[in-house]
């Protein structure tokens, strides 16, 4: 990435930002060059994650939150992730449909991403895409995950503040005490709060939070009601995002979380890289031979892996 492109990107030029994101999505050398050029300019944006089950209203909520930040003069980047078909590799990226209010506003940059086989609720290039938007000077980056089930929790490692969106009627109170997605919430949102049962959903979430042992200075996630489609409850949600940010700052948690995030990223990329090098170093017939031995029950998976890794490194 040349100097002029970096400067143009940092000035918020949409074409430069869009192309840099395509490069990090493609991965490989190109992605590394982009990140090498931009990394020093990152670390300024407040990254807000929005996750929750399909159909709870994440995109509509993101649209409303973004509108409110725009009214306050902030420039925003939005990354919206939707799933890739495991069968064809194709994807329908439909989140922009709910974000039409933001179209034509050059203070907002929206990018849709397909997961391209990555698990965990994000695409593997999402964290690099956040870096690109951060370097481009967007003060706030909103990241909407795929419609998440119970274990798509990677967003919490990438965001400073995580909103988990629930809606009435999706499950009883036993769902609320299960491990997983509810645990990563800094703010819990019960959207579609005009529906019946909204209060019992709120009560179930509150009860779950009350059961959690509380240490001093712990953040206790608020449970907020919104009707995103009508813009109701949005100001409250944005106020709580601000409170959470202030909480992180006053307890020096931004620094420690940043380090935890960097450590997790280091481990993840090291794993990917090791895997790539391992696979590159082994020819296919060798893997086939090991599979045959496993099929014949001459070797179990652990022995086969020993053989695979041992041989590559010797």
């Amino acid at each position: 990435m040349d100097r002029a492109t970096v400067e143009s990107l940092r000035g918020g030029n949409s074409r430069a930002v869009a192309r840099a994101i395509s490069a990090v999505e493609r991965g490989g050398v190109e992605a590394r060059e982009v990140i090498a050029a931009l990394f020093r300019y990152t670390g300024r944006a407040h990254v807000i994650g929005v996750t929750g089950a399909p159909g709870t209203g994440k995109s509509t909520l993101v649209n409303e939150i973004a509108k409110l930040y725009r009214r306050r003069g902030h420039r925003l980047g939005i990354v919206a992730v939707d799933p890739t078909s495991p069968f064809t590799g194709g994807a329908i990226l439909g989140d922009r449909l709910r974000m039409q209010d933001l179209a034509g506003d050059d203070g907002v940059f929206i990018r849709s991403m397909a997961t391209r086989g990555n698990l965990g609720g994000l695409a593997s290039a999402t964290s690099d895409t956040i870096k690109v938007l951060d370097a481009a000077g967007f003060a706030i980056v909103l990241v909407e995950t795929v419609g998440a089930g119970q274990s798509e929790v990677d967003i919490a490692k990438n965001a400073h503040t995580t909103l988990v969106v629930d809606a009435p009627g999706l499950g009883d109170d036993i769902q609320a005490i299960k491990a997983g997605i509810l645990e990563i919430a800094d703010i819990l949102i019960v959207n579609k709060a005009d529906h019946d049962d909204a209060n019992s959903t709120v009560a179930a979430l509150e009860m779950n939070l009350n059961l959690k042992p509380k240490a001093e200075n712990d953040w206790r996630p608020p449970v907020l009601k919104t009707i995103a489609i009508q813009g109701e409850g949005i100001a409250d949600a944005v106020e709580w995002i601000g409170k959470h940010r202030a909480y992180l700052e006053s307890n020096h948690l931004l620094e420690s979380r940043e380090r935890a995030r960097l450590r997790a990223e280091l481990e993840l990329v090291a794993q990917r890289e090791l895997m790539t090098r391992l696979v590159r170093g082994v020819n296919g017939s060798k893997i086939e031979a090991l599979v045959e031995k496993m099929a014949a029950r001459e070797m179990d998976v652990y022995q086969a892996v020993e053989k695979l890794i041992g041989d590559t490194h010797s």
Binding site: G90, A91, L97
Partner: peptide, 8 residues
Amino acid sequence: GMEVIYTG
């Protein structure tokens, strides 16, 4: 196999 952005 394409990624389709649908804007409506």
